[in-house]
Amino acid sequence: MNTTIEETLTSLESRFELKDIKQQRGDLVFVTVKKEQLISLLTHMRDNENFTHFVMLSVVDWIEDGVFQLSYILNNPEKHVDIVFRCMIERENASMESAHHLWKQVATYQRELYEMYGIDFPGSPRVHESFILEGWDDIPPMRREFDTKKYSEDTYFPRPGRESKDPKEHMKNKLYPDADK
């Protein structure tokens, strides 16, 4: 399999619907795929294209668009090439097919995503158990609609008298008080 990343993409395109292919660097490509095709695509990448190493799974909350963007980063350890598959899913009742059967460690990422964003991965092992938060009972804290400052003020007894300053303004005032004048 002495193919370049471009050839790989070409061959993928013939099988899957790829959008927004963006080659960031010579060894890093971003591709957006449809939610339904993602798992089969990952399987294909692992089994046929030698992308055997699962690097990570992360999420971006596009609250304005009402979607979560999941990013699955795969690595080809022989050619040192990474491909990032992005996949948009609905924000409401977010749910995604689990990929833990491909790489065991995916389950851990999925647990984290469930806890922090509330994205469900049905069938993933222990996905509903608490991961790093013990006893969290509010909406998942990393969702953008969650107001962490308000939560903190409500919960953690803020010490009165604390001032918050904009660092830029503060430092400017402190170091160059006369700059504006």
Binding site: L133, D138, P141, F146, T148, K149, Y151, S152, E153, Y156, F157, P158, R159, R162, S164
Partner: peptide, 16 residues
């Protein structure tokens, strides 16, 4: 430990 410091508005860190 005094007032939360740089984590003063964190969802998971105590303030006082």
């Amino acid at each position: 430990t005094i007032n939360g410091g740089m984590y003063w508005d964190s969802y998971n860190t105590i303030n006082r």
